[in-house]
Amino acid sequence: MNELAQQIVSGLATGSIYASMALALVLIYRSMGVINFAQGEMAMFSTYLAWQFAQQGMPLWIAFPLTIAIAFAGAVALERVVVRPVERAAPLTVVILCLGLLITFNGLAGWIWGYTVRTFPSPFPTTPLHIGSAAFSSQDLGIIAVSLLSLGAISLFFGKTKLGLAMRAAALYPESSRVLGVRVGWMLALGWGMAAAVGALSGLMVAPVVLLEPNMMQGILVYAFAAAVLGGIDSPVGAVVGGLALGVGLNLIGAYVPVIGTDLQLTTAFGIIIVILLFRPAGLFGRRTMRRV
């Protein structure tokens, strides 16, 4: 029983990283109809910034919020300057641009900080937390708490504030929103900013675990993409549920199905996802679009 609980908690911890990244992907997808393949590298780059600040002696409680703020502002600027010219272009054009950004951020990080794998300071205590006879990693619990808090804040923002409402309207009904006075272009930029902020947060959370290096987010982006598709690519709730389910599922398969073990757990997880998508093509929470022929 204890072991199962521990496996689930540790699955939830990695799952909440996937969930955050998946949410970042969904935020962009809903407004532009494309996956921002650079999302992971943007998060990685932000994480390097935090590392740099920490190296300069800045305390983490200043360095982390500062990093997230920079990620937000940087992505807003990036959208306005680089993405805006192709906003109305064909999806493939935007995809190419995103791939270009991926390569750029990856190369920039290597150029500035090198490819040495570095340890990254964890904001959480290293001592495990005992609940009953089970011991949970404080790191895992911290990651879960921070992710859930940030996801909750985002859901409140979209559900309860006028600006959040306008961002949703701009994404789903751009033309109708414009006649109501919504600056759709800026809403798009804000969406990029928020996605980058969420991404940076997950980079900061995961870096102590996977260690800091320019390719650290690439595997995570694949998981996040799978989680987003599993949940329904246009559904923020789906992204979170998909991320958590994927994290827990992978962990349980790795721990309890020895035949599969850690080598094939990913393959198995993807196999399950594909089977689910066969029955629910729009994902668990996605909107089914009817197409009349």
């Binding site: 006028k162 409402l165 306008a166 949703r168 309207a169 789903l172 009904y173 033309e175 109708s176 929103s177 006649v179 109501l180 006075g181 919504v182």
Partner: peptide, 23 residues
């Protein structure tokens, strides 16, 4: 009020009205 009414179909009536007051 454009052709097709510009209804934000998946938004509630209240949210539609609130978007009207966006400015």
């Amino acid at each position: 009020v454009p052709e097709g009414r510009g209804t934000l179909g998946s938004f509630t009536v209240r949210e539609n009205l609130s978007m009207g007051a966006y400015t």
